[in-house]
């Protein structure tokens, strides 16, 4: 984003250049989100649909309904578990690629191996767990054949476990990429300087590597949190409809065309996500990162 003083463009040119982006963002992001907020205060009438009004009815409905709380709690639980697992995996895989693989070419190759699935369909990747985790799936039949168990494990598929597996499968990449990015920028001599000062292997990771990829970790966490919090489909497919998520309520309301309450629920979700995002950035102290 370094300002170019190459050709002294007029501000008009600059604005023309961002105009298409601005237009798309306004029309397909700002206005829709604003409308969601507005509609969340509207009234819903059976058979009539949306009635313009200003009421807290939808919010009161939601907050007084214990299901909302259970669903949010369950989503937060999934978010935290997924965050923990993807962080540990993402950090150590990036660490391996950056600091242990000696050839840069191989490191880039292995990095690409990790990223390719990102560009393929999420739904297919979810479905592909069925023949692996199912009652007659690969893992169960292997365990039975090995004599470890005699009844197939039921909790492998359509359970909280399979939901977490799918989340980790789909979203670890969002941790690996930003952490890899910030790690790759660490000057290797910093590690040697730490070793010189008597730091152990773990001491180097804790005192040098970890603090220097805070930004990457924060970015990865932001992705994972928003993806899991906003997810409806993974939890539905992988739990077989047994678990819900914060978005399940929205889904139900939409089935009955109750847009105002769906919108109110969406607003709550949005606020929770933004609060978590703000908390993450507070923890990392991005301002300090930007100053240096």
């Amino acid at each position: 984003m370094s300002p170019s003083n190459a050709a002294s463009k007029s501000p008009l040119t600059t604005y023309l250049q961002v105009a298409p982006l601005m237009l798309v963002l306004l029309l397909f992001f700002a206005v829709p989100v604003a409308l969601v907020v507005v509609v969340s205060f509207f009234r819903y009438q059976m058979l009539v649909g949306i009635v313009p009004d200003f009421t807290f009815r939808n919010y009161i409905d939601l907050f007084s309904n214990p299901t909302t709380w259970t669903l949010y709690l369950s989503t937060v639980k999934f978010t935290l578990i997924t965050l923990a697992i993807t962080f540990v995996l993402g950090f150590w895989i990036a660490y391996f690629l950056v600091f242990h693989v000696r050839s840069l070419l191989i490191a880039i190759g292995l990095f690409l191996v990790c990223t390719v699935p990102f560009w393929t369909s999420n739904i297919i990747r979810m479905i592909s767990w069925r023949p692996v985790l199912g009652t007659e799936g690969l893992i169960n039949s292997a365990l039975i054949k090995a004599g470890v168990i005699d009844q197939p494990l039921q909790w492998l598929l359509y359970s909280d476990f399979s939901v977490v597996v799918a989340y980790v499968h789909l979203f670890t990449l969002f941790m690996i990429v930003p952490i890899f990015n910030s790690m790759a920028r660490i000057d290797k001599s910093l590690l040697e300087a730490a070793v010189d000062a008597g730091a152990t292997r773990w001491g180097v990771v804790w005192n040098v590597v970890l603090p220097l990829c805070k930004t990457g970790i924060a970015l990865g966490a932001l992705f994972v949190v928003t993806l899991v919090m906003g997810d409806f489909f993974v939890v539905t497919v992988m739990s077989g409809g047994l678990s819900g998520s914060a978005t399940s309520g929205i889904f139900n309301d939409l089935q009955f065309l109750n847009y105002p309450r769906a919108a109110a629920n969406a607003v709550i979700l949005l606020i929770v996500v933004l609060l978590i995002a703000a908390a993450i950035f507070r923890l990392v102290d991005v301002r300090k990162e930007l100053v240096r």
């Binding site: 001599s189 040697e192 300087a193 070793v195 010189d196 000062a197 008597g198 220097l212 805070k214």
Partner: peptide, 20 residues
């Protein structure tokens, strides 16, 4: 032997000061 047991200290070309 690890550097710290050698009694050496290294000053790096880039200085390698911890930026954080």
């Amino acid at each position: 032997k690890p550097p710290v047991e050698r009694g050496t200290a290294m000053m790096f070309q880039s200085y390698a000061l911890f930026p954080h």
